[in-house]
Design a protein around this nucleic acid. Structure first.
Lengths: 167, 167
DNA sequence: CGGGATTGCTTCGAAGTCGAAGCACGTTGT
DNA sequence: ACAACGTGCTTCGACTTCGAAGCAATCCCG
């Protein structure tokens, strides 16, 4: 592809573009599957997965920390999940402000019904074209990238800090 | 208690999750920068970039092919870009159905004003934590993944999906 | 040629998303 | 104890997104 972009970044931009393109395709496929098998958006699936993985109930804030998602959007999605009987919300006994979110049996059941297809799709889409060495390297790379990004303060500093840190 | 997660393999699942998480973070940062520097959504930036890279005008369909995006959404975004004077739309002389989209000088100028910051952000977010070998391997891996996904049968042929609801 | 299927795009309505503002509880300082 | 501020979540309004339906031009095939 003759791209004037190429002048500003050599191999890096190519990698970047193909990375984003691949991600878009993967996300799209995953979204389709999760919707078809469980009537869930991917966000909802992620939220259920997070609750399944957690020991007990989580606050809204803890829930949002795992998914890159706005607070108001989380409220909306939690409302949908609650109405569908997949989670429950109750005020925390320790802190009346906080809302504790718990997964119901139905939610757990649905998650485990959707997961196999999810795994199947990701394997077919992603892992079938990877060798064990690729997988190893990819995991290593992305872990470092993730940590690096998490450490980077955004250009516009955090709109709202969630913990009193030393600053 | 057969755990379907175990069948995929903990390493694969972990890689998958960290991949999605990292790319979510990257996308979020990129979105911020493009918005801050040019008042554009990432979709709009992509569309301009595609038009800049093209030799001449593109049809709406050609434009949509590069970006994973719905047709109606593209119509909407093209409307915004046109109203902002960044592109123009005109019926094709060859095919009266088709709409030819061209980038204006203002659009080209804006794109090139935003691009350096874009490159800078992606470099800082993504490539600073990668070695040359990482970059090489990552590009190779994702190219294969992308091609693999592109080759997969489209979602029109859904083999055996349980229907969540009657539609 | 002519009629139906196909293609390219837009319109429309429902739903999702986000940031800002609002509400309620908690914490701190006096 | 009270006021003032901070924190956790929800509500609100504006905007975006998507699929389905609609419209018009083109293609296909007799």
């Amino acid at each position: 592809m003759t791209d004037p972009v190429e002048r500003l970044g050599p191999q890096e931009l190519g990698t970047y573009f193909v990375l984003l393109e691949a991600l878009s395709l993967l996300q799209h496929q995953v979204e389709q599957q999760v919707q078809a098998d469980g009537g869930l958006s991917y966000i909802q699936f992620q939220l259920l997965g997070r609750l399944v993985g957690a020991e007990g109930p989580l606050t809204m804030t803890q829930l949002a920390d795992g998914v890159v998602y706005s607070r108001s959007g989380l409220t909306y999605q939690a409302g949908l999940l609650e109405k569908a009987g997949l989670i429950t919300r109750a005020p925390s006994p320790d802190d009346e402000r906080a809302t504790l979110v718990s997964i119901t049996d139905a939610g757990r059941e649905l998650f485990h019904r959707v997961l196999p297809g999810h795994v199947e799709v990701t394997r077919r889409m992603l892992f079938d074209s990877l060798t064990a060495d690729d997988l190893d390297h990819l995991g290593d790379i992305m872990t470092r990238v993730r940590d690096h990004m998490r450490a980077q303060p955004p250009r516009s500093a955090a709109p709202r800090k969630r913990r009193p840190k030393n600053n």
